[in-house]
Protein backbone atom coordinates (compact mmCIF):
# COMPACT_ATOMS: atom_id res chain seq x y z
CA UNK A 1 0.00 0.00 0.00
CA UNK A 2 1.37 3.39 -0.97
CA UNK A 3 1.30 6.26 1.50
CA UNK A 4 -1.84 8.34 1.49
CA UNK A 5 -1.30 12.06 1.29
CA UNK A 6 -3.97 14.42 2.56
CA UNK A 7 -4.44 17.71 0.77
CA UNK A 8 -2.02 19.66 2.97
CA UNK A 9 -0.09 16.87 4.65
CA UNK A 10 -1.39 17.75 8.11
CA UNK A 11 -0.60 21.44 8.17
CA UNK A 12 -1.27 23.31 11.43
CA UNK A 13 -1.48 26.90 12.61
CA UNK A 14 -1.44 28.25 16.13
CA UNK A 15 -3.25 31.58 16.45
CA UNK A 16 -5.79 32.58 19.04
CA UNK A 17 -7.34 29.26 18.07
CA UNK A 18 -5.61 26.16 16.78
CA UNK A 19 -6.11 25.03 13.19
CA UNK A 20 -5.17 21.52 12.08
CA UNK A 21 -5.66 19.81 8.77
CA UNK A 22 -6.50 16.21 9.62
CA UNK A 23 -7.06 13.18 7.48
CA UNK A 24 -7.16 11.41 5.28
CA UNK A 25 -10.57 10.52 6.62
CA UNK A 26 -12.90 7.98 5.03
CA UNK A 27 -16.05 9.44 3.50
CA UNK A 28 -18.85 7.84 1.56
CA UNK A 29 -21.49 9.80 -0.25
CA UNK A 30 -24.73 7.88 0.00
CA UNK A 31 -27.86 8.82 -1.90
CA UNK A 32 -31.23 7.15 -1.59
CA UNK A 33 -34.71 7.67 -0.20
CA UNK A 34 -33.81 8.16 3.46
CA UNK A 35 -37.06 6.58 4.65
CA UNK A 36 -36.24 3.20 3.10
CA UNK A 37 -35.86 0.39 5.62
CA UNK A 38 -32.75 -1.17 4.08
CA UNK A 39 -30.92 2.10 4.75
CA UNK A 40 -31.70 2.04 8.46
CA UNK A 41 -30.67 -1.60 8.56
CA UNK A 42 -27.41 -0.92 6.73
CA UNK A 43 -26.51 1.96 9.03
CA UNK A 44 -27.41 -0.11 12.05
CA UNK A 45 -24.77 -2.63 11.02
CA UNK A 46 -22.26 0.23 11.19
CA UNK A 47 -23.54 1.15 14.64
CA UNK A 48 -25.26 4.24 13.25
CA UNK A 49 -28.77 5.43 12.54
CA UNK A 50 -30.40 7.66 9.94
CA UNK A 51 -29.83 11.27 11.01
CA UNK A 52 -32.67 13.76 11.08
CA UNK A 53 -32.50 16.73 8.74
CA UNK A 54 -29.30 18.76 9.27
CA UNK A 55 -28.02 16.42 11.94
CA UNK A 56 -24.95 14.28 12.32
CA UNK A 57 -25.01 11.02 14.26
CA UNK A 58 -21.67 10.08 15.79
CA UNK A 59 -20.78 6.80 17.40
CA UNK A 60 -17.56 4.91 18.00
CA UNK A 61 -15.35 6.76 15.57
CA UNK A 62 -17.96 6.71 12.83
CA UNK A 63 -20.54 9.29 11.91
CA UNK A 64 -23.24 9.84 9.40
CA UNK A 65 -24.36 13.33 8.45
CA UNK A 66 -27.47 14.58 6.68
CA UNK A 67 -26.40 16.42 3.54
CA UNK A 68 -29.70 16.84 1.72
CA UNK A 69 -33.13 15.17 1.68
CA UNK A 70 -31.72 12.26 -0.30
CA UNK A 71 -28.05 12.29 0.62
CA UNK A 72 -25.96 11.23 3.62
CA UNK A 73 -22.26 11.44 4.27
CA UNK A 74 -20.79 8.46 6.10
CA UNK A 75 -17.54 9.34 7.85
CA UNK A 76 -15.26 6.54 9.01
CA UNK A 77 -11.62 5.47 9.21
CA UNK A 78 -10.08 5.65 5.74
CA UNK A 79 -9.10 1.97 5.81
CA UNK A 80 -12.70 0.89 6.32
CA UNK A 81 -14.08 2.60 3.22
CA UNK A 82 -13.73 -0.33 0.85
CA UNK A 83 -15.41 -2.88 3.07
CA UNK A 84 -18.10 -0.45 4.18
CA UNK A 85 -18.91 0.41 0.57
CA UNK A 86 -19.29 -3.30 -0.08
CA UNK A 87 -21.59 -3.66 2.93
CA UNK A 88 -23.70 -0.70 1.89
CA UNK A 89 -23.94 -1.72 -1.75
CA UNK A 90 -25.03 -5.21 -0.81
CA UNK A 91 -27.53 -4.02 1.77
CA UNK A 92 -29.05 -1.39 -0.51
CA UNK A 93 -29.08 -3.45 -3.70
CA UNK A 94 -32.83 -3.88 -3.41
CA UNK A 95 -33.49 -0.14 -3.59
CA UNK A 96 -32.45 2.71 -5.87
CA UNK A 97 -29.28 4.19 -4.38
CA UNK A 98 -25.84 5.58 -5.09
CA UNK A 99 -22.80 5.06 -2.89
CA UNK A 100 -19.45 6.56 -3.86
CA UNK A 101 -16.13 6.90 -2.12
CA UNK A 102 -15.42 10.61 -1.76
CA UNK A 103 -12.67 10.37 0.89
CA UNK A 104 -10.02 11.82 -1.39
CA UNK A 105 -12.22 14.61 -2.68
CA UNK A 106 -12.28 16.31 0.69
CA UNK A 107 -10.03 18.16 3.10
CA UNK A 108 -10.87 18.10 6.80
CA UNK A 109 -9.88 20.69 9.36
CA UNK A 110 -10.14 20.96 13.12
CA UNK A 111 -10.64 24.37 14.71
CA UNK A 112 -9.94 24.22 18.41
CA UNK A 113 -9.78 26.58 21.34
CA UNK A 114 -12.06 28.72 23.42
CA UNK A 115 -12.62 31.22 20.64
CA UNK A 116 -12.93 28.72 17.79
CA UNK A 117 -16.41 30.02 17.06
CA UNK A 118 -15.01 33.44 16.15
CA UNK A 119 -13.03 31.94 13.28
CA UNK A 120 -16.15 30.62 11.61
CA UNK A 121 -18.13 33.76 12.37
CA UNK A 122 -15.67 35.69 10.21
CA UNK A 123 -16.10 33.40 7.22
CA UNK A 124 -19.59 31.94 7.21
CA UNK A 125 -22.96 33.72 6.99
CA UNK A 126 -24.27 31.51 9.76
CA UNK A 127 -25.69 32.33 13.19
CA UNK A 128 -23.40 30.06 15.17
CA UNK A 129 -25.20 30.78 18.43
CA UNK A 130 -28.19 29.08 16.84
CA UNK A 131 -26.20 26.00 15.85
CA UNK A 132 -27.68 23.09 17.77
CA UNK A 133 -25.69 20.22 19.27
CA UNK A 134 -25.25 17.57 16.63
CA UNK A 135 -26.11 19.95 13.82
CA UNK A 136 -24.23 19.68 10.55
CA UNK A 137 -24.25 22.98 8.73
CA UNK A 138 -23.51 23.29 5.05
CA UNK A 139 -22.67 26.81 3.96
CA UNK A 140 -19.84 28.76 2.45
CA UNK A 141 -16.59 29.93 4.00
CA UNK A 142 -15.74 33.12 2.13
CA UNK A 143 -15.89 31.91 -1.48
CA UNK A 144 -16.05 28.11 -1.17
CA UNK A 145 -18.51 25.48 0.02
CA UNK A 146 -17.91 23.90 3.43
CA UNK A 147 -19.71 21.82 6.02
CA UNK A 148 -19.01 21.89 9.74
CA UNK A 149 -20.22 20.62 13.06
CA UNK A 150 -19.27 20.83 16.72
CA UNK A 151 -17.10 17.98 17.92
CA UNK A 152 -14.94 17.54 21.04
CA UNK A 153 -15.25 21.16 22.07
CA UNK A 154 -14.13 22.47 18.68
CA UNK A 155 -15.36 22.42 15.14
CA UNK A 156 -14.70 19.93 12.39
CA UNK A 157 -14.84 21.56 8.98
CA UNK A 158 -14.90 19.82 5.60
CA UNK A 159 -14.11 21.44 2.27
CA UNK A 160 -13.23 20.25 -1.20
CA UNK A 161 -9.70 19.01 -1.56
CA UNK A 162 -8.66 21.33 -4.38
CA UNK A 163 -9.30 24.44 -2.27
CA UNK A 164 -7.72 23.10 0.92
CA UNK A 165 -4.88 25.59 0.69
CA UNK A 166 -7.34 28.48 0.26
CA UNK A 167 -9.38 27.27 3.24
CA UNK A 168 -6.24 26.94 5.36
CA UNK A 169 -5.39 30.51 4.36
CA UNK A 170 -8.83 31.72 5.41
CA UNK A 171 -8.62 29.97 8.76
CA UNK A 172 -5.10 31.23 9.37
CA UNK A 173 -6.03 34.81 8.51
CA UNK A 174 -9.06 34.67 10.78
CA UNK A 175 -7.21 33.06 13.67
CA UNK A 176 -4.22 35.41 13.61
CA UNK A 177 -3.41 36.64 17.09
CA UNK A 178 -4.76 40.11 17.65
CA UNK A 179 -7.84 39.39 15.54
CA UNK A 180 -9.97 38.28 18.47
CA UNK A 181 -13.36 39.88 18.13
Amino acid sequence: MHDLVSALGGKTFEGFAKIREIGPLGMISLRCDLRQKPLAAALKKLGLSVPAARRIVQKGGRSVGWMSPDELLVILPYADVGSTLETLRNALAVIHFLAEDVSDARAVFRIEGEKAEQILSKLCPVDLAGLEPGELRRTRAAQVAVAFWVEDGGYTLVSFRSVASYVMGLLTHSATKGSEI
Binding site: S68, R138, A145
Partner: peptide
Protein backbone atom coordinates in the same frame (compact mmCIF):
# COMPACT_ATOMS: atom_id res chain seq x y z
CA UNK B 1 -33.65 29.29 -6.36
CA UNK B 2 -31.02 26.71 -5.57
CA UNK B 3 -29.62 26.24 -2.09
CA UNK B 4 -26.26 26.03 -3.79
CA UNK B 5 -24.00 26.32 -0.73
CA UNK B 6 -26.34 24.22 1.40
CA UNK B 7 -28.28 21.07 0.60
CA UNK B 8 -27.95 21.69 -3.13
CA UNK B 9 -31.66 21.48 -3.81
Amino acid sequence: WRHAYGCGK
